[in-house]
Amino acid sequence: MPISSLVITLTDDQALADSACESLGARPEIELGRHVANRLAAVVDSADSEADRETWQWINALPGVAHVDVVFVHFDDPPREESPELHAEHRAGGVAP
């Protein structure tokens, strides 16, 4: 259940930036913090790493968002998975138990 905090830089286009703020504020897993000039603080509290990734991608793709920096992340649970295609050949080569 990762918790991360972000600094979101909004675009110069004020209308787009306002609409981005509105969309961000509507997501239950995102809590918005201080907003100074184009920079907006946000905390994302996700159910799991997949949800965290989806939220991250969604924010990055949101019209009105120019750039996203990360400030803090807390991940209670280390990953228990890896890309299935990774090292298939290596495993086929086999490591003796």
Partner: peptide
């Protein structure tokens, strides 16, 4: 603990914003 971590996370982001 989670609430505390969230407030720490928000404090860090807010500090970066200002």
């Amino acid at each position: 603990r989670r609430t505390f971590m969230k407030s720490a996370a928000m404090a860090a982001a807010s500090a970066a914003v200002v």
